[in-house]
Design a protein around this nucleic acid. Structure first.
Length: 353
DNA sequence: AAGACGGGGAC
DNA sequence: GTCCCAGTCTT
């Protein structure tokens, strides 16, 4: 009964999304990975470019991971891209290019967790596997009036609710309800197809369900960022796969003890960083993450050879084909602003030669 | 169970 | 400023 009302509402009110025009498991999979912890509206332009460049699993498996990271640049959570690339190669190598349609095999691929497995299995393969994302968590918490349900509880509830005749539509309907009506703030209960069976609504606790997670403690981190730009390009370092901005190209970074700690050339040298000329400081760029407040302290420098192997001077045109974090562009703007100020202060020194 | 991992949009 | 988004992996 309630299932029928939710499905009818979904068929009437669902958004038009690029991945709703296909049942191709590859396309569904890509959309699910891109939407992890990411607003749908932010993911859409990335998805469109991705599917033009990599229309099949084989296309991604054959592509250099650097090309993928360039496409992913700005979307965040870059391990998603690296895992998807690894997963695509595994599908080609271990599954003959066919995306596995069993939960255990699909779930074993890197980057595929309980949610993504449930979503792809139900939407692309019409299998009755529950998918609990942030939307479903909120919808079910309110329906059952649960304050702090565990993922396990929610999965059991979601599993018992699955419409076995149309698992794909059911998964999407539940998520769409959370996205469009059963929102965290100002839910539109009057328009909800499940308003009659919603326990939180009956108890007047909708606004408190589920309880918000306590925010993580935000640690402050200070980093020196070495900006060495010449006519030949900008010196970049490929970041290790583990850690922030893994696999992306970034100016060389070095931990700074505090906001006021002076630059210590000997400690920098111990990390493989030595300067040809004195460093000019630029205003700090603040980069906020969920659990970090990163203060990037740029220094305009000329780095002395020899460099570590993972450094490279990259010219402007090649730079656009590298995966880079958004913070790189922000440091770049700070550097350019300072150079403009210098030019205004002493234009005669910068006369074109 | 908790922390690491991006970035941005809505308020 | 705050919250949190179609989560996953590691410890």
């Amino acid at each position: 009964m309630a299932r029928g009302r939710l499905r009818a509402w979904f068929q009437r009110c669902q958004r038009e999304l690029p991945w709703r025009r296909t049942r191709d498991p590859w396309a569904i999979w890509v959309s699910e990975v891109m939407c992890q912890q990411t607003r749908v509206d932010s993911a859409i332009p990335y998805y469109e470019r991705f599917m033009r460049l990599y229309p099949t699993t084989a296309d991604l498996a054959a592509a250099p991971v650097d090309e993928l990271l360039s496409l992913w640049s700005g979307l965040g959570y870059y391990s998603r891209a690296r895992n998807l690339h690894r997963a695509a190669t595994q599908v080609m190598r271990d599954h003959g290019g066919r995306i596995p349609c069993t939960e255990s095999e699909f779930r074993a691929l890197p980057g595929v967790g309980a949610y993504t497995a449930g979503a792809v299995l139900s939407i692309a393969f019409e299998q009755p596997v529950p998918a609990v994302d942030g939307n479903v968590r909120r919808v079910l918490s309110r329906l059952e009036d649960l304050a702090a349900p565990t993922n396990r509880q929610l999965t059991v509830i979601a599993d018992s609710w699955i419409d076995r005749r149309a698992p794909g539509e059911w998964t999407q309907a539940l998520m769409e309800l959370g996205a469009l009506l059963c929102k965290p703030i100002a839910p539109e209960c009057d328009a909800c197809p499940l308003r009659e069976e919603c326990r939180a609504r009956r108890h007047g606790t909708v606004a408190e369900r589920p309880e918000p997670r306590r925010p993580p403690k935000v640690k402050e981190v200070h980093l020196w960022a070495f900006w060495d730009e010449t006519a030949a390009g900008l010196v970049l370092e490929r970041r290790p796969d583990q850690g922030i901005w893994g696999g992306l190209w970034m100016v060389p970074l070095l931990a700074r003890e505090s906001a006021a700690a002076p630059f210590d050339p000997r400690r920098a040298a111990a990390a493989g960083i030595s300067l040809q000329c004195a460093a000019q400081p630029l205003p700090a760029v603040i980069h906020l993450l969920t659990h970090r407040r990163i203060l990037l302290h740029p220094l305009r420098v000329r780095l002395a050879q020899p460099w570590p192997a993972e450094w490279e001077r990259v010219s402007g045109e090649a730079l656009s084909r590298r995966g880079t974090p958004t913070s790189l562009a922000r440091i770049g703007r700070a550097a350019k602003a300072q150079m403009d100020r210098e030019w205004l202060a002493a234009p005669q020194e910068k006369s074109v030669g």
